[in-house]
Design a protein around this nucleic acid. Structure first.
Length: 277
DNA sequence: TTAGTGTTTACGCTGTGCAG
DNA sequence: CTGCACAGCGTAAACACTAA
């Protein structure tokens, strides 16, 4: 009897192929879920039907992978209708497995030590008696709910000190403190005026861009600036924002970078004004 | 034939952005 | 402020397929 043609050998071969095809389908779905969740992207689309032009990130990324890998493309195309491993239920199941692994690692790390929570939503098995701080984001439509939440947690653990939106408070404190120092206050006021004057008129904005382009070519010609793809873009000035302290730094940095160009624009403005008087 | 598992489809809900 | 459109998620019901 020819062993290679035996019915059992043939069936075994088919089963092995089926298993490896299923595994490849599942592996592709797992990779897509991992990538999308790592990037913080939404999975679903508004219209996920086969005629849709945008079937959502999960399905679109899957078909992109399939288009680059013949093996993946083939197993996805030939998937049985009850085991394509691409439905929203499967996506969610894979995600839940990842979530529980992440939770386990965090639990192991914290163990029975004291901890604080900063959350949008949390369900876990930590001992509430070990909480030593709680902080929530301060969206106005959530505050009422969170106030009651922090009160409830305080009931269970009186050491769970509540800090409302710490980053925002730090920002407000910085702005208030800086305002008290006359020199700092004057500096940021002048900065704001300079930026506003140079940016608010589209005519002056064009002048600024032209002056900065000229400045960049000048610096390159005297070897003060390195050249390369994507380098030396013209850029623009940025306003210092009261609500985000980091914008103050951005604003100062942008003015330093465009100092000569900004001076040129302001000089031009001064000359134009003196011609009218 | 049936129970179990997974997919598809349709629809509802929430949040957001935009125009009037 | 209101109404509308849209994105994205959840879910129920119908359907497809498989293993026992």
């Amino acid at each position: 009897m020819n062993q290679a043609q035996h019915i059992k050998v043939s069936l075994d071969r088919q089963a092995t192929q089926k298993i490896s095809a299923n595994r490849l389908r599942l592996k592709t779905s797992i990779d897509v879920v991992r990538r999308l969740s790592f990037q913080g992207c939404a999975f679903r689309g508004h219209d996920e039907s086969s005629e849709s032009k945008n079937r959502g990130n999960f399905l679109e990324l899957l078909s992109l992978l399939a288009s680059y890998d013949e093996k993946v493309g083939n197993v996805l195309k030939s998937a049985p209708q009850n085991a394509s491993y691409t439905s929203s239920t499967i996506q969610k199941e894979i995600l839940q497995i990842y979530a529980s692994r992440v939770r386990n690692v965090i639990r192991e790390e914290i163990s029975d030590r004291k901890f604080s929570i900063i959350v949008d939503e949390a369900r876990n098995n930590f001992d509430i008696q070990n909480i030593r701080g709680q902080g929530y984001d301060g969206a106005s439509n959530m505050r009422g709910e969170f106030n009651s939440l922090q009160a409830l947690i305080l009931n269970d653990c009186r050491y769970a000190y509540y800090v409302h939106c710490f980053a925002h408070r730090l920002q407000l404190a910085l702005v208030a403190a800086a305002r008290e120092v006359v020199k700092v206050h004057q500096f940021f006021k002048d900065l704001s005026d300079i930026v506003n004057i140079a940016l608010t008129s589209s005519k002056r904005y064009d002048e600024l861009q032209k002056a900065q382009a000229a400045e960049i070519s000048r610096l390159v010609s005297i070897n003060e600036l390195a050249i390369g793809i994507g380098m030396n873009q013209i850029g623009t000035l940025q306003c210092p924002s009261e609500t985000r302290w980091s914008f103050h730094l951005n604003s100062v940095t942008s003015l330093l970078k465009m100092y000569n160009a900004t001076s040129t624009v302001l000089e031009n403005l001064k000359n134009a004004a003196s011609n009218y008087s």
